[in-house]
């Protein structure tokens, strides 16, 4: 998606720049209001500026703006579903596919990660046994 949007933006910007430059050149070649022309004509006969621009420049401008808007929309970050169930399901599937380094960096990952990645239960009996051995060892040392 990124490459396509960049390509669209680039081509669109080049076309838009060309169109704007062409329009500027055209208006400087055929000025609408010559300073020497008397301002006596009625407003009805004033040439509207839209019709004075050649059709190819107009089409190029419109095409370029369509191209750039498509590129901007394609390049924007993708929307997220607002319903909790769909959103959580999408997160689960994404995390299963990739360990979502980007999401972690953005800080917008799975809000239940604390629950899902916690260590397992502590082995209480094993801990108690370790502690008793340690106490016994200390007793042995004290007896000596």
């Amino acid at each position: 998606m990124g490459f396509t949007s960049n390509l669209f933006n680039l081509v669109g910007l080049v076309l838009l720049g060309h169109a704007v430059y062409s329009a500027h050149e055209h208006s400087s070649q055929n000025p609408l209001h010559l300073p020497s022309s008397p301002p006596s004509f009625s407003p009805l006969t004033t040439p509207t500026s839209t019709t004075s621009l050649p059709t190819d420049i107009v089409l190029e401008t419109l095409f370029s703006v369509l191209l750039i808007s498509t590129g901007i929309v394609l390049g924007s970050s993708s929307l997220r579903p607002i319903q909790w169930s769909k959103w959580a399901g999408q997160l689960e599937r994404e995390e299963r596919v990739k360990k979502s380094v980007k999401e972690i960096r953005e800080g917008t990952g799975n809000p239940y990660r604390i629950l899902e990645e916690r260590p397992g239960f502590v082995d209480v009996r094993g801990k108690r046994k370790e502690f008793m051995e340690w106490v016994r060892k200390g007793d042995d040392l004290a007896a000596k």
């Binding site: 704007v20 401008t61 703006v65 750039i68 808007s69 924007s76 579903p81 607002i82």
Partner: peptide, 30 residues
């Protein structure tokens, strides 16, 4: 999910502000 709602609104707002300036360029050129 409020976070998603805000994210979507921000995305739309970004697109709008970018394209608005672009449409201004086109309207002025035409």
């Amino acid at each position: 999910v409020m976070e998603s709602v805000q994210h979507n609104a921000k995305t739309i707002s970004n697109i709008r502000s970018l394209t608005a300036s672009l449409f201004g360029v086109v309207a002025g050129t035409l």
